[in-house]
């Protein structure tokens, strides 16, 4: 199964001259502007940025749910025109079909492709086995914990052998411990399948720990503020998060985002509010020391 899924030479995402605006009563509102990003085949790339910067908008455009106002999104040279099974997606809200069992959820993409029942059942079992979920194949999603749900979500997105995997804050709703385990699982699957990944998160540690490269976005209207390569060696270990290399990257990204967050909020809050915010931000940077 994993041999067939592996497509190391495929999955080149390119976003060029991208901007996206939507209409409102006051005229067009620019959500993302003048953005170029790319993901090489088999690369793991994250997008971080202050909330509301348009990182999810960008991801949804790559998925094909939103059309760029200007610019172009291509995968392996083909223009993205709409959602397709070529680009698997994992959502923060799990988005499992509650009326389908775990296995039926994983089978869904294969069913849509017209694979006969017995064959797709076997394929789904294999994949669930890889994710350590075979014991839960007959359960309905409601019975599962958040971490398990999201594992099913990832397995489901990978089942059709997509060229790229898009993840929209997939671990945002999970507790810290589960989150760490899920990051490990995702890394393992990614290394096995050699699939290109575009990962949106607001968690800087997560982005550094997982990625080959991180894009940092500006406040709205979003554009790429910086592109940071993550030279940490693989396989990555939890212990690396304490290394000076990691912490340096973290500090750099943190200050980039802080700048943008302040810019994003600056328009909305008074000086008094800003002071309150500074205290909070210092609390954040305390973590740097630890």
């Amino acid at each position: 199964m994993s041999e067939r899924l592996a497509s190391p030479s495929k999955g080149h995402i390119e976003v060029r001259n991208f901007s996206l605006s939507y209409d409102s009563i006051e005229g067009p509102v620019q959500a993302v502007t003048d953005t170029q990003i790319h993901v090489k085949p088999g690369e793991f790339v994250s997008i971080v940025g202050p909330s509301g910067c348009g990182k999810s908008t960008l991801l949804n455009a790559v998925a094909g749910f939103l059309k760029p106002t200007t610019g172009i999104v291509t995968v392996d040279g083909d223009r993205v025109g709409g959602p397709s099974a070529e680009r698997g997606m994992v959502f923060q809200q799990y988005s499992l079909f509650p009326w389908k069992t775990v296995r039926e959820n994983v089978e869904f993409g294969l069913k849509m492709r017209g694979m006969p029942r017995s064959q797709r059942e076997r394929a789904a079992r294999t994949l669930l086995g890889l994710a350590g979920l075979e014991a839960f194949e007959k359960h309905y999603p409601e019975k599962l914990s958040g971490g398990m749900k999201q594992r099913v979500g990832i397995v489901r997105a990978l089942a059709t052998g997509p060229k790229v995997l898009l993840l929209d804050e997939p671990f945002g709703a999970l507790d810290a411990q589960t989150r760490v385990i899920m990051q490990q699982i995702l890394t393992n699957m990614w290394q096995r399948l050699k699939i290109s990944v575009l990962f949106v998160t607001h968690d800087i540690d997560e982005a550094i720990f997982l990625s080959d490269r991180v894009y940092c976005m500006t406040a709205r209207p979003g554009s790429i503020k910086a592109e940071i390569p993550i030279p940490l060696e693989r396989p990555r270990q939890q212990s690396m998060m304490m290394s000076s290399e990691f912490l340096a990257l973290r500090r750099g990204l943190m200050s980039l985002i802080r700048e943008e967050s302040l810019k994003a909020m600056g328009g909305e809050i008074s000086d008094m509010g800003m002071q309150g915010l500074n205290i909070e931000l210092q609390g954040h940077s305390l973590a740097d020391v630890i």
């Binding site: 709409g82 959602p83 997606m89 988005s95 499992l96 869904f108 849509m112 997105a157 059709t160």
Partner: peptide, 18 residues
């Protein structure tokens, strides 16, 4: 109907009828 579920189905290759 949760629109996220519709989108999930779409990027698993489901067409209108499915």
């Amino acid at each position: 109907v949760d629109p996220v579920l519709v989108r999930a189905a779409q990027c698993l290759g489901a067409r209108e009828r499915s």
